[in-house]
Design a protein around this nucleic acid. Structure first.
Length: 277
DNA sequence: TCCCAGGCTCTCT
DNA sequence: AGAGAGCATGGG
């Protein structure tokens, strides 16, 4: 499969030209990742694993500042899911409402985030609102992550597992702190083994994740979709449940079979923004 | 002030 | 197995 885009190196930057179906603002701010900051216009900064990135979109170009070709190929290409043909997938949809959502928010991509970070982040997301989720995660990184010069990395499961429950009070995460600690302990001890999860089928992997306290159906689906690249995941939060009951009471459209997670992300963002009008 | 947030656990039927 | 209360905290 060949995806239409051109990759150029210019000074210390990587320039991506004519990438199809890639809107960085939609992708970074549609509720799947919580650490990206919109510093101005269409410029965003964030930290993934131990790398800081400043990224800008203008016209047909996306600029990855201070990025080596090696980092682009080894990290960012996967993170932004650049080997997947989103245009082809969206073109295959034939459901009326879904097409509206896809047209309105064309360019959302499913980010391939770090597995542990995703599990932890979506544990924090439960019964919570997005500004507060971002705040808790920011405090988690500043207090327990590593200073990488510009910003902090997301702390490892091992680091969090070494802490006491009351050490997490600084997060002001409420009842979620004990879940964060349990997730860190089970993952760092490999009682829940991330590497093995990657080899499992979707249902088995989901059941493994649910062994972590504070991880239920929804958090497990989010983890698999955003952290493991399992685009067949279909997390149903309050918004998606509304969509399903309003539009698809008799079942999801056949056309999204296999790419449910991508359809879900467009529908989620669309339905959620309708409410804010 | 009150309601609610990208839910889960525990308890009671 | 299905329903409902309780949960910590703070944004709007």
């Amino acid at each position: 499969m060949v995806i239409k885009m051109r990759i150029k190196k210019e000074n210390d930057n990587i320039i991506l030209e004519d990438a199809e179906c890639f809107d960085i603002a939609f992708s970074l701010d549609c509720g799947q990742a919580f650490r990206w900051k919109n510093i101005k216009d269409n410029i965003w900064t964030g930290v993934v694993k131990n790398k800081y990135l400043k990224i800008e979109q203008k016209e047909n170009k996306i600029i990855f500042y201070n990025t080596s070709l090696e980092d682009f190929n080894l990290l960012w290409k996967e993170y932004f899911d650049l080997d997947r043909d989103y245009k082809k997938i969206l073109d295959s949809y034939d459901d009326e409402s879904l097409l509206i959502a896809c047209k309105e928010y064309y360019g959302i991509r499913i980010l391939k985030q770090d597995e542990w970070e995703t599990v932890c982040s979506f544990i924090i997301s439960q019964n919570n609102n997005i500004p507060r989720i971002k705040g808790i995660i920011e405090r988690l990184c500043e207090n327990f992550g590593e200073n990488i010069g510009e910003g902090y990395s997301f702390p490892s499961a091992e680091k969090i597992a070494s802490l006491k429950l009351e050490d997490l009070d600084v997060l002001r995460a409420g009842f979620r702190s004990k879940y964060i600690l349990d997730a860190a302990q089970k993952i760092s001890s490999k009682e829940v083994d991330i590497e093995k999860l990657k080899e499992m089928n979707f249902e088995d992997a989901k059941q493994e994740l649910i062994r972590i306290k504070g991880v239920g159906e929804k958090v497990a689906q989010c983890s698999l979709l955003y952290g493991f690249g399992r685009i067949e995941g279909f997390p149903q939060d309050v918004w998606v449940k509304r969509i399903v009951s309003e539009l698809y009471p008799d079942g999801l459209p056949e056309c999204i079979k296999g790419t449910e997670g991508i359809a879900q992300q467009y529908l989620f963002h669309w339905r959620r923004n309708l409410e804010n009008l």
